[in-house]
Structures are given as C-alpha cells and as structure tokens.
Design a binder for these strands. Structure first.
Lengths: 215, 215
DNA sequence: CTTGTAATCGGAGTGCGTTCCGATTAGTGT
DNA sequence: ACACTAATCGGAACGCACTCCGATTACAAG
C-alpha cells in the first residue's frame, strides 16, 4: 500500500450511479479534520466566486481564504476542475431529483417523448444559469464534461427514455449524445455572443430536432 | 499608435471568409525575417509532434528547436492554441477545397441532402485523423473551436445546404450547430474510449439524424 | 492515558503558458 | 551610403496549476 494516495476525491458527481468505484464499498468515511477542511474550502470558494467572479478563483487564493495549504485542496478535490464540480454539486443534486423522482412532465408519469423534451429544456436552463462555473470546469480539464458523473446520469436517463419512445434499430446511445452535444456551455456561449440567439431560440431548435427524431 | 502590438496572428483559420478582419485591407505583408521565423517555428513544431507527440509540444521546446525566443512565437501565433491551429491549417485548406470546389457528392453537383451527408462523414474522418492536434487546440483554449475560422466555414456551408434542402420555418443556423456538435473531438474520444463506438457507429448515427431531419 | 501508525496538513518547489521591455534589425527616404 | 523609424527579436520575469515530502495530528488498540 502506498499510503500516499489513499483517498481520491470521495465525492463530486452527485449520486453517480455508474462511476466505476474501485471496490464499490466505502472505505474509511473521512476523518473529522478532513471533513472540516472540505467545508472550509467550499465556503471559501463560494465566497470568492460571489465576490470576484469565477476567473479570480485561483487555488492559492482559495487556500489563503480558507486558511489552509494548497496541498489540502488537491487531496480533497483532485484538481481545480474537481473543486468547481464540487461547487456545482449542490444544485446538481436538486436537478437530478427533479427529473428522476419529481412531478411530470420532468419526472415519471408523462410520455417518454414529453419527458425528453422537458428534460432538454430544463438542462438548457440549468446550463444557462450555472454558465460561468460550467465554463470554468470545462476550461480546467477539456472533456471533463463527459467523464463527470452528471453527464453519465443525463446520458443513461435519455437512453432509457429514448428506448421507450423509439422503435429498435436506431442507436439510442448515439442519439442521446447528439441531443446533449448542442447543450455544451462553449457552444451556447457562442450562439448567444456571436449569433445573438436566445434561450428561446435554442429550445425551439431542440424541439425541431425532437419533432423529427421522435415523430 | 502603440507600435507594440502591430501584427496580431496574420493567418490561422484558412480562407476564413467571415472572420471580421478589422479594416479588411492587408497592412504590411510581413517582414522577411518574420516570415522566415514563422516557417522555422512551424517546421520545428511539426518535427516535435512527429517525434514525441503533441503532449511534448511546449512553447519553450519549440523555441529552442527553432533557435529563437519564445516572444517570437507569441508574436506570430498569439498563443499555444494559435500555433496548433496553424499546424492544422495545411490539411484544412485541402479539406475546404474538397467540399467547396471538389467533385460530388462532397463538392457541388449533387443533391444538398447527399452533400450534407458526405460532408459530415468527411468531417468525422478528418476529426478522427487529426485527433491529437484538435484535442490539444481545444485544451489550450476551450471554445476556441467555435471562434476558429474553420468552424465558421463549416457552419455557413451547412446553413447554405440545409436552406436548400429544407422548407422554411426551421432554424438552419441551429440545425447546423446541432449537426456539428456531435463531431467534437472530446465527445468522439469519449465515445471511442468509454462506449467502444467505432467511426462506423458514429457515421451511422449521423445518418439516422439526417434521415429524420431531411427526409 | 499512552502508544502506534496511517491519514492528513502545508508550503516550498516545479513546469509551462504568457507577458514585458530593452536591444536589434529590416526597410525606406535622402 | 547613411540615418531614421517602426517592426521584430529574445529571454528574464510572472502567474498559476499542480507535486512532493517532512512534520503533524486524529483515531484505535492495549
């Protein structure tokens, strides 16, 4: 045992029901001082983002504000992107609850087609709302979106719904990726800044896509 | 006049027919030593990529191999991503020629629907071929893809074809973005590495998408 | 309470992208 | 040829993400 890298980021991903946890059992939960420092770090980061914006969220500054060393941050969150993902996690949990166990049409009870549409609209709103943080996470580690817990949850959710809504023979996994791809933060940023498109335009475009692919 | 920042990256983007060049007229073409150094830099970078791979392509190493200072690289290419885009440019020019003036179905002469399909297939192959470089460019500056010249060319090309192929009332600009979005290097990487999908699977999925949206 | 030890802490150190600015050189008018 | 000026060059310096490892501390066993 190396004893030098015993606890990789124990959270970040929210519910992550498909992340391949090594033994799947939980090891030592977390030491008291470690938990206290995690809280301090998250509070300090939240404070800094609220005060100066995401671009000022440097690791050294967070460490200083939290009154700890930078090594502690990397032990808890892996890298800067992990810290940003952790900040997104709280909202993420609520969002996942909504479409997994909430009221229709987002939650169970409505037609699969309607649920897909409601989900994509809600996700578009969520990306627009948490815009800066999502962009910052993407900037620190490109492709992190796809490796993150939330993307996996979205994908399996869509695959489930699409399989119910479509005849077999089409690749539901690819269609799910293709429907999520236009909702990347950098693209939506470009569509807003350069093309002058609004959230309404984007939702309308997604509706067109759905009308064709799901009848 | 500041005289300190007179020549922002004068190329990189290939043909870029829609980049908003400030006065649209060409200023002083380029001094002889500057042109010579650009060539040296590109040759050194190509050599390093061929020898050690993209991850070894550091700015300091390129400067050393080319026998110049790092400041020169930044004057010529703006940043690391600009250098990588310049490396992609040569292949890019050939690719653009193919679908703008080449033989059908990629070039003019075929039905718009067939040209869209051929274009997306060709682009998928191109992304797969230039995988490492595209990923590196994206890593240096997230969202650079959308701001780059090539993306603008692809987008206007698709908008033109889609407008010909579809009845009015649908947003061709969004549809073009939505068709290009699944061909991002990070997503294709994820689909290959994690989902085990092949280039064939991706093309088949794109065909499904087209069958629905274009009949 | 004491002791053992494994996880944790913290900050100096490293690598790399990027900037800054004095020295140098190319191109032009005389 | 010669001088003038503006663009170019080069490398020292900076900021920030990330690593390393000796010192410290929490927790459990005796």
């Amino acid at each position: 045992m190396d004893s030098r890298r015993p606890a990789p980021p124990p959270s970040s991903g929210a519910l992550e029901p498909l992340t391949p946890l090594p033994p799947a059992g939980k090891a030592t939960p977390e030491r008291a001082d470690a938990a206290r420092n995690r809280r301090r770090i998250l509070d300090a980061a939240t404070r800094i983002v609220a005060r100066h914006g995401v671009q000022e969220l440097t690791v050294d500054l967070v460490a200083g504000e939290a009154g700890i060393g930078v090594g502690t941050i990397y032990r808890r969150f892996g890298d800067r992107a992990g810290l940003v993902f952790a900040l997104l996690d709280e909202h993420e949990r609520g969002f996942q609850r909504e479409f997994m166990t909430g009221p229709p049409p987002l939650g169970p009870g409505a037609e699969p087609t309607a649920r897909v549409r409601a989900f994509l609209h809600a996700l578009a709103d969520r990306v627009a709302a948490q815009f800066e943080l999502i962009l910052a996470a993407e900037a620190s580690a490109p492709g992190a979106r796809y490796r993150s817990g939330p993307y996996g949850v979205y994908h399996t959710h869509l695959v489930t719904l699409l399989t119910q809504a479509r005849p077999p023979g089409t690749d539901a996994r690819f269609l799910a990726d293709a429907l999520l791809a236009p909702l990347s933060a950098p693209l939506m940023d470009h569509q807003r800044q350069v093309r002058g498109m609004t959230a309404q335009d984007i939702k309308a475009g997604l509706d067109d896509l759905l009308r064709w692919s799901l009848g």
